[in-house]
Simulated assay, not measured.
Amino acid sequence: MLDVATAALMVLVTLSFSYKLERSTRVGWKYQHYLHELAHTDALTGLPNRRKFDAAFERVLRTAAREQRSVSLLLLDIDHFKSFNDHFGHPAGDQCLKQIGAHLSRSMRRPLDFAARIGGEEFAAVWFDAQPDDARRMAEQLRAGIEALAITAAPAHGPLVTASGGLVHVESPSLAMRSADISARLISNADAALYEAKFGGRNQLSVSRGTDPLGSRGEREVSET
């Protein structure tokens, strides 16, 4: 039989091993979480990137379908950003995007509302269960807020940075459609509305007014500054 000292030593060794294993597992989980966030976050603005946007948008659509709630999607594109970047340089362009990202992040306050950077100078904002007029008001505030940042490469040099937006709103997405299909249709409609805003002179919001945004593109209503 083992003596008391040997038994106590074995207990201590076992406890030490268990602690190290638990600590290693915890550190490993934190590292995996860090890598996951790194892969789903835009490094420049700190906003969700396109990959995370796609997954989060589909989750919101599934929730809206189950609970029979609405979803609003805004696509924002910075006007003449390539010219701004080429003229003032990439550091100024990066700083511009950082300020816009911070503005969007500050503006999304409810748990299921979020903003993301989905392309070079393109951003998206999603509102869950907002009335159409409220969604339009919030979208216009985001767009106008970018101009209000008064971003220029240097004080009193060059025009202010502005953005154009395309907004689409859907009531109670269908449970019969895949969330990925609904997402693709809404993004397409919002993108078409964004094109209308660009074509109409930029620095404005265009709202998709189709009665069935999942069935047709519908009409556009442009809100000018």
Rank of each mutant, 00 (worst) to 15 (best):
A5D: 12
A7N: 12
L9W: 08
M10V: 07
V11R: 15
T14G: 13
L15E: 07
F17R: 14
S18D: 05
S18K: 10
Y19R: 13
K20S: 09
L21I: 09
R23Y: 06
S24L: 10
T25K: 15
R26S: 11
K30G: 00
K30Y: 04
Q32G: 01
H40V: 03
T41A: 07
T41G: 05
D42S: 13
L44D: 04
P48N: 06
K52R: 15
F53S: 05
D54L: 09
D54P: 04
D54V: 11
A55W: 08
A55G: 02
F57Y: 11
E58F: 09
V60K: 10
L61P: 06
R62F: 00
R62M: 06
A65R: 11
R66W: 01
Q68L: 08
R69G: 00
V71P: 06
F81Y: 04
S83W: 07
D86W: 09
H87L: 09
F88Y: 15
F88A: 11
H90D: 02
H90W: 08
H90C: 03
P91V: 09
A92C: 10
C96T: 14
G101S: 07
H103P: 00
L104A: 00
L104S: 00
S105A: 15
R106M: 05
R109V: 10
L112P: 00
F114W: 10
F114G: 05
F114S: 05
A115P: 02
A116R: 01
G119K: 08
F123W: 06
W127F: 14
W127Y: 09
D129P: 03
D129K: 08
D129R: 10
Q131D: 11
P132M: 09
A135F: 04
R137A: 09
A139V: 06
E140P: 04
Q141C: 08
L142H: 12
L142K: 08
A144D: 03
A144W: 07
I146K: 04
L149S: 06
T152Q: 15
T152K: 13
A153G: 15
A153Y: 07
A153T: 04
A154H: 11
H157V: 12
G158F: 07
L160E: 03
L160K: 14
A163C: 08
G165P: 04
L167A: 09
V168D: 02
V170G: 01
V170N: 01
S172P: 00
S174P: 02
S174A: 14
A176H: 14
R178Q: 13
R178D: 11
R178L: 10
R178Y: 02
I182F: 06
A184S: 12
R185W: 00
L186I: 04
I187F: 14
S188N: 11
S188L: 12
N189D: 01
N189I: 09
A190M: 03
A190Y: 01
A192K: 14
L194A: 04
Y195M: 06
Y195K: 11
E196M: 11
E196V: 14
F199S: 13
G200R: 11
G201C: 07
G201N: 10
R202I: 03
S206M: 03
V207T: 07
S208F: 02
R209T: 13
L214D: 01
L214S: 03
G215I: 06
G215D: 03
S216E: 15
S216R: 14
S216A: 15
E224R: 15
E224H: 15
E224Y: 14
T225G: 05
T225F: 10
